[in-house]
């Protein structure tokens, strides 16, 4: 491991300042791995664990504020999360292992880096790690890779399960930085690769995530988180689907679907979602929606299966969320 300085600020302003020239560390479940692999080479670590950002509390508008430093475990098993935002709990518990979730924080979950094996292997080219070096995934190992929103320079995906649910719930991120506090809509938080795959979020230098804000409606009656992976646990998604819906009788009033494992960010298509407005709840509605969402999909030799798999997973998740075909 390369030598680095360690800094433990006790207030946000100091942290932000230090963060302009260092890397933030919270749970460290991803950063430490990347440092051991020499993918991340921070000269300074700024430890956020002493800023008092670990609480979970209800907000004035009826929503819920998840502290950035609350662990994934605390969040997933929080009674309000379980009762009012069960899809979030379900998604968190679909990821990683109990040990990792005990350490991993909510803010860190958002900032996970891709699990593309070429990104981790410093002896392979990777445009995200070394801009301009190339992307072997396009013709190589691409099971975990994007079919939506990718670019010629990078087809990596964001590995989080939690973020897929947050996108479906329309969460907001609160950040604090050298220029004060601001809010970022979840949809705008992660960036698509374009020709700068090394820039993954809209965070400015020195900005610290302080909280994730959930709106009042958690869709506790009609939700599903469906994850397709290669083993029963402890594997990243080939495709995952967070689906929430509002129903009136058998009529679908609103449906939201976010996909994981298919893009550099949790993927939603608001235009396609209009096909879930005021429609009967049936396989045809769901299938039409899935086809529209996947219309712009672009596959690579190693991930052609993902389009039909995503379609099946979307129909499955929406059926589950709307209690269709349940035994």
């Amino acid at each position: 491991m390369r030598p680095f300085k360690y800094n433990r600020p006790l207030d946000l302003a100091t942290a932000s300042n230090a963060g302009t020239s260092g890397s933030f560390i919270a749970g460290g479940t991803n950063l430490l791995d990347l440092m051991k692999c020499d993918v991340e080479q921070p000269s300074q670590l700024v430890d956020l664990n002493h800023l008092g950002l670990g609480s979970i509390s209800e907000t004035a508008d009826g929503g819920l504020e998840l502290g950035a430093l609350a662990t994934n475990t605390t969040t997933a098993y929080h009674p309000i999360v379980q009762e009012r935002y069960p899809i979030l709990s379900r998604a968190i518990l679909a990821g990683a292992s109990p040990q990792l979730r005990n350490k991993a924080t909510n803010g860190g979950n958002l900032l996970q880096r891709t699990r593309c094996p070429y990104f981790f292997d410093t002896d392979s080219p990777c445009n995200k790690r070394v801009p301009g070096s190339g992307c072997p995934a396009k013709e190589g190992y691409s099971k975990l890779h994007a079919i939506l929103g990718a670019s010629d320079s990078c087809i990596a995906t964001h590995p989080s399960d939690m973020c897929v649910a947050l996108r479906a719930l329309d969460a907001t991120i609160r950040v604090s930085g050298p220029h004060g506090e601001r809010r970022i809509e979840f949809a705008d938080f992660h960036r698509l690769p374009g020709d700068q795959p090394e820039i993954e979020t809209s965070l400015e230098k020195g900005e610290v995530i302080t909280a994730i804000l959930l709106p009042a409606d958690g869709f506790a009656d009609n939700f599903a988180y469906f994850k397709v992976r290669e083993r029963a646990s402890y594997a990243f998604a080939l495709v995952s689907v967070a689906a929430v819906a509002r129903l009136e009788g058998n009529q679908l009033k609103e449906g939201r679907v976010a996909l994981g494992g298919v893009a550099a960010k949790p993927w939603r298509d608001l235009e396609a979602e209009s096909l879930l407005c005021d429609q009967p709840c049936n396989a045809e509605t769901f299938g039409n929606f899935a086809d529209a969402l996947l219309q712009s999909a672009k596959t690579y030799p190693g991930n052609r299966f993902k389009v039909p798999m995503a379609r099946a997973a979307i129909v499955r998740a929406l059926s589950e969320a709307t209690h269709l075909n349940q035994l």
Partner: peptide, 23 residues
């Protein structure tokens, strides 16, 4: 095996899968 690079590429337990207890 990534034949264009000539190397095994999934060389860790995140991507080289063996069953977990749940399997």
């Amino acid at each position: 095996m990534d034949n264009s690079l000539g190397r095994f590429i999934n060389h860790d337990f995140a991507n080289y899968h063996i069953p977990v207890n749940a399997d």
